[in-house]
């Protein structure tokens, strides 16, 4: 069967790719597009390491067919910093040591950014439930939750 042609936007760049009908978005990101920041921890939507934004939705790219990307606007971890300027969440994760091995970090950051875009004043419980789809085996989540809460506070202050 001929491959499917998909036109989409990834991290602000108009992008075209060819894929098989059963390729996941994660397969295409990590393979032909070379965007290996999104990780495959399970391939079943349970770990969140492949989290991306599809338009304004947070999705597991392993559960999305690549063909579904047609005419959409996708953001991956590679699109989070602007040039050399880290997003405040990225900076805060470094300052608070909110990562150890770092394999879950791209997905956690993408998901945390999605939270703060919806709710810049989340409670600890809201952060914990929002990130319940992002497994981290190293940190026990403590420093991740603190980093998200601290970033939110700083961003609120900056917005005033």
């Amino acid at each position: 069967m001929a491959k499917l042609h998909v036109s989409t936007t990834i991290n602000g760049e108009p992008t075209e790719f060819l894929c098989e009908a059963n390729d996941s978005m994660l397969d295409v990101l990590r393979g032909p597009l070379g965007l290996t920041g999104s990780k495959e921890g399970c391939g079943s939507g349970d770990c969140g390491a492949c989290s991306i934004m599809l338009d304004d939705r947070l999705v597991c790219s392993c559960l999305m067919l690549a063909a579904e990307a047609e005419d959409s606007d996708i953001t991956t971890i590679e699109g989070m910093a602007v040039g050399e300027k880290l997003h405040p969440l990225q900076q805060k994760f470094l300052e608070l040591a909110a990562l150890q091995c770092g394999i879950c970090t791209p997905g956690v950051l993408v998901a945390s950014k999605a939270l703060l875009e919806r709710n810049l004043n989340p409670t600890e419980t809201e952060v914990r439930y929002w990130l319940a789809g992002n497994l981290c085996r190293c940190t026990g989540y403590d420093k991740i939750v603190r980093a998200v809460l601290d970033t939110a506070a700083e961003m609120r202050e900056a917005a005033q």
């Binding site: 990590r30 495959e40 880290l86 470094l94 970090t105």
Partner: peptide
């Protein structure tokens, strides 16, 4: 001191190369 880790920037931007990358 809680210094910034040398491999930190690569790990928060998706550039760090793990086994499958």
């Amino acid at each position: 001191q809680n210094t910034i880790r040398p491999d930190g920037a690569d790990k928060v931007t998706g550039r760090a190369a793990y086994g499958a990358d």
